[in-house]
Design a protein around this nucleic acid. Structure first.
Length: 496
RNA sequence: GGCGCAUUGGUGUAGUUGGUUAACACGCUGCCCUCUCAAGGCAGAGAUCACGGGUUCGAGUCCCGUAUGCGCUACCA
């Protein structure tokens, strides 16, 4: 039985890179009939928050990625992690390190690492030079018993190398000389990442570890741990990273909300669309078809189809039109205009409701009208937000007139101030009032008045919707109905 | 500093065991359609396949080197 897991640390919003890892894990599990598990890596108590855990769970739910079995909270397994470390010490595979803990400040950590490495190479010391590495057991036990604080480190052999066959990146090797005696337990007894991950993965029966490429180095350390523990090593598939447009790391601090999955929900993305877009970042289907529903994605997905080069998430921070990747935006629009009514209507309902535009009749006697209206306007919308902003005039009489539209379609034709109310009089007599009859009436009236039909059409569009763009005007007349059409044509509102 | 990975048009990606004019999607330009804007249709611009060597009759595809980028290198995860 194949078992995979998504193991985020709850230290903030759900990053789109993490969301993609979750997606790939899920697709793989569903494709092969395995289990997809969720583990919250909350061992860093200071940084972990419940709110973040909630956002991760909600994010997965939004993307439609359901997980099997109960969520595992890593912090709950700390006793097992400690026990494993102690067992390794007892077996002589790990040792207590009584070196006093160094003070580190996070800001300069990377620099510190490089500096230390430089210093180490010049003074000739290596990863095996820890003075406590070969401390006699009796002395180690005595000092521990006396209450002296210590960290626990894995005893990595002097000679040898780790190797594994990465499903994405191929054969990987690392000399032991490149690997330090990694810390397993902090001097306060707190288990560290690499230990916890391995113990939990073993405990959960994980067979395939699918995670970001930034973990490749960790994988070598973890293999050492599997070996020390005498446990079979799972298969690994590392994923290329998602980078910012400058090829740098995508981070909240630098790039803001565009990296947070929550943003896409808040800004009107259809979950299926974003999921589809995410799937195409680093993975490509066997054929050229890119728009795929979940079932298709699942069917086509394979670890072998994952590329090795990091992908750039292409967006322009200062341009509202391109606030996120163009292709994601395009895909969202594509979904909005093509998904079934049954799928779309609930999303539109939520959007309208959030903006106090929803009326219960839309699910009752005005049900058909609502569906037809949505079908009419969805064609040119890019996000669900558009239903409450650009689409506002269809659901409320309280809508704004865009200055540009008023200038272009109304004020440039001074006669419209009289023509439009007069047109309203004509329309009022139509029965039935349909796209066809209103068109006939408008065109005839334009001819009588010696003006172009377009003048009346565009003027009407702005009077009825406040905008310069929108669906075919006669469809709008029909959808809005005679009363509202006539009333809006007569209202002098935008003229003042 | 060390180790590792990557490098195909602006972006996401295809390019099978090396073989004619490097393919698809988004974006971009123009035209058509038309009451506007989209959508749609048609046409088009844009890649010396990072660079330099080499192997070969022939290389985006194999080898070596260089550059650039990214990742890791922590008693963070």
């Amino acid at each position: 039985m194949i078992r995979v897991r998504f193991a985020p640390s709850p230290t903030g919003y759900l990053h789109i890179g993490a969301a993609r890892s979750a997606l790939f894990n899920w697709l793989f599990a569903r494709k092969v009939g395995g289990k997809f598990l969720l583990r919250i890596e909350d061992t860093d108590l200071q940084r972990s928050t419940d709110e973040s855990t909630r956002s991760i769970i909600e994010g997965l739910e939004w993307l439609g990625l359901d997980y099997d079995e109960d969520i595992v909270f890593q912090s709950a397994n700390a006793p097992q992690h400690r026990a494993a470390a102690n067992r390794l010490v007892a077996e002589g595979k790990a040792y207590r390190d009584f070196t006093p803990k160094e003070k580190r400040d996070d800001a300069s950590i990377k620099q510190g690492i490089a500096d230390r490495a430089r210093a180490q190479s010049t003074e000739g010391s290596d990863h095996r030079s820890n003075p406590y590495r070969d401390l006699p057991r009796e002395e180690s036990d005595r000092r521990a018993a006396a209450g002296e604080p210590f960290a626990v480190r894995l005893k990595v052999a002097h000679e040898g190398k780790t190797s594994f066959e990465d499903i994405v990146y191929g054969a990987q090797e690392r000399n032991y000389s490149e690997i330090e005696d990694l810390a397993l337990l902090r001097s306060d007894g707190h288990p560290l990442y690499n230990l916890s991950v391995v113990i939990d993965d073993i405990e959960m029966g994980i067979t395939h570890v699918i995670r970001g490429q930034d973990h490749i180095t960790n994988t070598h350390k973890q293999i050492l741990l599997y070996d020390a523990l005498g446990t079979p090593v799972p298969k690994f598939a590392h994923l290329p990273l998602i980078l910012a447009p400058n090829k740098g790391k995508l981070s909240k601090r630098k790039h803001g909300e565009v990296v947070s999955l929550t943003t896409y929900r808040e800004r009107g993305f259809v979950p299926a669309a974003f999921r589809n877009f995410l799937a195409l970042l680093g993975w490509s289907p066997p054929d050229t078809k890119e728009i795929m529903k979940l079932e298709e994605l699942t069917q086509e997905f394979s670890l072998e189809g994952i590329g090795r080069a990091n992908a750039i998430f292409n967006f322009q921070e200062n341009d509202p039109r391109h606030w996120t990747d163009d292709k994601a935006l395009w895909m969202n629009a594509e979904y909005i205009r093509t998904i079934s009514r049954d799928q779309l209507l609930p999303m539109v309902k939520a959007e309208l409701r959030a903006n106090k535009l929803w009326r219960e009749e839309y699910e009752d006697e005005d049900r058909e009208w609502f569906a037809k209206t949505v079908d009419l306007i969805r064609q040119r919308f890019h996000t669900l937000k558009d239903f409450s902003s650009q689409g506002r005039a269809y659901f409320s009489d309280d809508f704004d007139f865009e200055d540009a539209a008023v200038n272009k379609n109304l004020k440039k034709g001074p006669r419209l101030k009289e023509l439009l109310p007069a047109l309203a009089d004509r329309l009022e007599e139509m029965d039935p009032f349909t796209a066809e009859t209103s068109e006939a009436a408008l065109r005839q009236y334009a001819e009588e008045q010696g003006v172009k039909a377009g003048l009346l059409i565009n003027g009407s569009r702005t009077m009825l919707t406040g905008q310069a763009v929108g669906p075919s005007m006669f469809e709008v007349f029909a959808i809005l109905g005679k009363d509202r059409s006539v009333t809006r044509l007569r209202s002098g509102v935008p003229w003042f």
